[in-house]
């Protein structure tokens, strides 16, 4: 049976709220990045931008949001399509395996992002 054991917060309401809040943060971040890139930037300007504390916080916030957003989203996809109902016992194995892989990758990406941003 499909359960909530690998969902981000185990609560439907909380997952739903986090999904929406992180979406707004991601929109703001990528909107800002797109705006900066569209204006044309040199390496020096780009480097100076990311040297500022507020930009580091903003970028880290975006990285954390992306991880949470992806966790919840992929959990939704996996629990829809990779289930015992649709695929038999191997659905459970496949789903749990991919969920763990996704979660692990996201945690690694966040740590990696911290390393890049706060270097």
């Amino acid at each position: 049976m499909v359960t909530a054991v690998t969902s981000l917060s185990r609560s439907g309401l909380s997952d739903w709220l986090v999904q929406r809040v992180t979406a707004v943060i991601l929109l703001a971040f990528f909107g800002f990045i797109g705006f900066k890139l569209a204006g044309g930037v040199s390496y020096a300007e780009w480097s100076a931008l990311f040297a500022q504390s507020w930009m580091k916080v903003f970028a880290l916030l975006a990285a954390l949001s992306l991880a949470a957003h992806a966790w919840i989203g992929m959990w939704g996809v996996f629990t829809d399509y990779l289930t015992e109902r649709l695929m038999g016992g191997k659905g459970n194995v496949l789903r749990i395996g991919l969920q763990l892989l996704t979660s692990l990758s996201l945690v690694i990406y966040v740590i990696w992002a911290v390393q890049i941003i706060w270097r």
Partner: peptide
């Protein structure tokens, strides 16, 4: 009874 990830929140 509705506050779990499936009952209501499967609606996209």
């Amino acid at each position: 009874r509705l506050d779990d990830p499936f009952s209501v929140f499967r609606c996209h």
